[in-house]
Design a protein around this nucleic acid. Structure first.
Lengths: 221, 221, 221, 221
DNA sequence: TATGAATGAGAATTCATTCAT
DNA sequence: GATGAATGAATTCTCATTCAT
């Protein structure tokens, strides 16, 4: 099964470099140093291996976001620093992509096209990630940690900006260092989402007095 | 030249619907109701027409952003409402994409792939748009209208979020109405970029007393 | 449409010579003197052209057997020589195959195999031909022209022997001349099927006095 | 050598079911429950095992027909019932095929194709069988047991009809019972071949007074 | 002996592009 | 200019056979 993994990795490189259509199975087997037919022992088709890479990406992404729990909620319940947790989340996301540049490029440069059957799967998986994120924002909103706003739109904005930053990073080979990058991103969105005067009170009533100190306050406030 | 335009439009539809690779020249000539060879009278190749569509998109986009001037700067100099102008900019951008959904899809779903030579051109054009935008933010920053921050990062964030919102719009067929969508987007970024306490003063010194009232203030402040 | 016909003919030769599986599309286009892709303008696939040849064979065969009528019945109703008509039928069948040796070989050497989807179609078409033939024998039986016997079996025997003779002919390049061959075949089956003593009477009763002279009598009887 | 036999049997099933080209070595080794390479210990190639099955078929067929003697001649010399012996021959042939349906299908549905080198071998073996049969008819003819006729043609007719009946049987799963089927077949050909007036006398002269009672007489004559 | 992972020659098919009309 | 039949390079995928273990 080691060989299978090897082929997957080489395929990721090839797809990332050449794109799905331009990448031929020949390119993959050449790069992997295997025979033409060997490829088809491990994968049913070119489409098959591509889809597997996409699944792998989203699998890893889900892991990073906290597969069946929410780091943020956990932090909140544990009385921890929600903001610091958010920052940690973002760092994990950035690092995940830094360590899997090929997968990221495959998903956001190749897989979105209407070309193939898998674009449906990509959208499905992207939607799942989006919903996970939106649920986190909803939680934060309900607890008065962020201002009242259209959560779908905010999710779109934040995801879009993250993808953009990540791709920028990948293309320009580490223009920023991870830590300060995360700081700046977090700061941007926190400023954009800081609660209004009435938000905290509304949340307190709504949730019967949950600890308001976990809410985001303007710095120094 | 009318026929050429007709082919371009049909090609945009086909590329948008099927993607660059899946769209064949046959599809295009069928949709345009012309002969196979006629296509090659007007365009050198499939790649060629695709590239032209991309150029068209960025051409129009540049127009919308203010080709050789800055709406924002103009507003500033004219003592007008900078924020309102920004909002108008965003509405123009949204409407441009709403009226050119095929081009938008072509650029952001198809052209980004590493498949073809044109990906280089796309990046070049995208970079130009990015720089235009960043220059506007620089101007605003220098005048104390936005807080001190990494302007490249902010540009990336805002462009990414805009693309994300636009594609979301295109895919989901107008989830939001244009006006309130623009309001929400503008509000998000304004909140994120509102000047800190010292920023205005610093800007005043740096620019020798430009009209501070044009700066963004927290609402109600 | 002339070119299409040309390809069909060359394909028949190739399939006849090499068999369906060994014959590659390359062989066909080489023999037809056309480009590789040209083949696919006229035919959807290798299977497609092969099936068309099979249909053509059975189409022609049906024509020879008398598409929507029966030469034998016609002869009978017209008071003509039924036996002579039968002999003429057999000559037409032999000549049809002599003039279409490739089709015959394709159907009886290649198409019967369980290999491909078309074997079902071949069996269907063969069954139609068989039923046509059996109906003729039934008609003759009902009129006392042949002895009482299992008509399905007789059909199988006669068709099998005809195919065998035809293939033998094709393989050995005209061992017999057509006329005397037909004579011998007809004689063989007539002798085998000559009515018994009671058959004519039974038929007479069954059909209320149809002309008994049309029935086959032992020569000289 | 038991294992070899096992593989042969499974291969016969697979070839019969799928046809030579569609049947892959994988199918055979899977069905035989052996490893991929094991196959090549016992057989040189796929073609090789197929050829061996064909040889097996004709070997068994020759056995059934009477390998180095003639049941008919034996019956004749022994003063036995030649017709009954012929009927027994036919029953043996039918039963041989009923018990070896896979081999029969392989030979008459698959092996006849011009696909492979073995078609030459099949024709060679078929010719041997044909000659054996023709020699028997010659013997019968010389003894005035059948009418004067082209023995090659008669052989072709009888073999063709037998193959046709057998394949019909195999495909339609025993439409007739063996005994009455044999009766009907024998009757058909006996009627077709019954000696004319004069034939017996000619034979008597030619063979200097061989037992004329062994000759076929018209029933009741 | 037995195995099955690995191989690569070869097959069918597609489609951007050309060019004679 | 306009056409579309013709082209063939390039692509995906199959499977009989080999060979190291």
């Amino acid at each position: 099964m080691e060989r299978r993994q090897h082929i997957l990795e080489k395929a990721a490189e090839v797809f990332s470099e050449k794109g799905y259509r331009m990448a031929s199975v020949s390119h993959i087997v050449d790069k992997a140093g295997i025979g033409r037919g060997t490829f088809y022992i491990y994968f049913d088709s070119k489409k098959d291996i591509f889809l597997e890479l996409i699944e792998t990406y989203f699998e890893g992404f889900a892991e990073v976001l906290g597969k069946n729990h929410s780091y943020l909620e956990e932090a909140f319940r544990g009385g921890g620093k929600v903001l610091r947790t958010w920052r940690e989340n973002i760092i994990r996301v950035l690092e995940y992509h830094r360590h899997n540049p090929h997968l990221a490029r495959i998903v956001y440069r190749e897989a979105l096209g209407r070309d193939e059957d898998f674009s449906a799967r990509v959208e499905e998986l992207e939607k799942l990630a989006r919903e996970k994120l939106r649920d986190e924002f909803r939680m934060m909103s309900e607890r008065g940690m962020i201002r009242r706003c259209d959560l779908d739109l905010v999710t779109t904005i934040i995801m879009g900006s993250m993808i953009s930053v990540i791709m920028e990073q990948l293309l320009s080979e580490n223009r920023w260092d991870m830590e300060s990058l995360a700081d700046m991103i977090v700061e941007y969105h926190i400023r954009a989402l800081i609660p209004e005067e009435g938000d905290v009170e509304r949340a307190v009533k709504g949730t019967l007095g949950k600890d308001r100190r976990a809410g985001m306050r303007r710095r120094g406030a």
